[in-house]
Amino acid sequence: MELLIQAGIALAKILIVITVMLLTVSYLVYFERKISAWIQNRRGPNRVGWYGALQPFADVFKLLLKEDIVPSNANKFIHSLAPFITLFVSFATYAVIPFGPDIKLFGRTIQLALADVNIGVLYVLALTSLGVYGLTFAGWSSGSKYSLLGGIRSSAQMISYEVSMGFSIAGVILLSESLRPMAIVESQYGFMWNALIQPIGFITIVVSAFAETNRLPFDLPEAEPELVGGYHTEYSSMKFAGFFLAEYANMIIASAMIVTLYLGGWQFPYIDKFGLSMGLTAGIQVLSFLLKMALVLFFFIWVRWSIPRFRYDQLMNLGWKVMFPLSLLNLIWVAALIMIFNI
């Protein structure tokens, strides 16, 4: 019986998270289009539903009805496998992100995270590196030079920026003394946000997150003027939609990771000092997590429509000669802080 209830709670959490996730992904696409329109003094989609609110669904239906074309000299198996790898990786990562504190419901404690894994951060790092395979496979198996170049670029880029990302996460782990996302969030109580304690690390992780998610200014794998569509040139219909969804899901993961590691996760500064009831506190904390995520996502979109694309050599220079030393510097800074102030 106990086991059944546990399983039921887990299932409910999974359902809620997946639904929220899918809805956010589709509305992220909508907001990307809206914000890009506003930045360019346009109105953006406003025909389907209230202010175009049903536009994401119209897009999905359009893609579903399209013909699924596989090039004749493609490796068919890997060609079909690649979008699934990308999608799987981006959705599986979300399992360890905590979105709220422990709450007490009907006499039992429920953790507001799908899985409170003690190596959560490592799990995220491992899975995001797996994501490279999706793009590289897609590029290689399409049998097209544009796709291949896009795939190679994406793997080079993601491997390069993984280094500085890893080191900027290491700074956080030094401070929190744990790889558990929950513990990392709890260590950022009040205004002890890592973004304020280690600003260099914050900058490096944000830049690496842009590179890892293949977003502008680092969207070289799909640089339209040179590579047509990059790794997804030869994809159509739902397989293309898979890549499209995965890109936005990756953005959500990246913003959730930035919020968890650097912006205090679900912490609302000194909320427990306000003397609010348990449920209200938890609600505000979950909301503050979502709000922080929304702000980071807005930043992602905002940057995309402001900054032009880097050249490939500039990207590699920035990755290895600037971001990597900066993230090491951040690590030393954090170590020095711990040595001097014993925090």
Binding site: W38, I39, N41, W302, W305, S306, I307
Partner: peptide, 19 residues
Amino acid sequence: EIVKGLGLTLKSMFRPKFT
């Protein structure tokens, strides 16, 4: 410089639309 650019785009988000 990036912050300057971001400021410019943020400003133009609130300009009147010509559509």
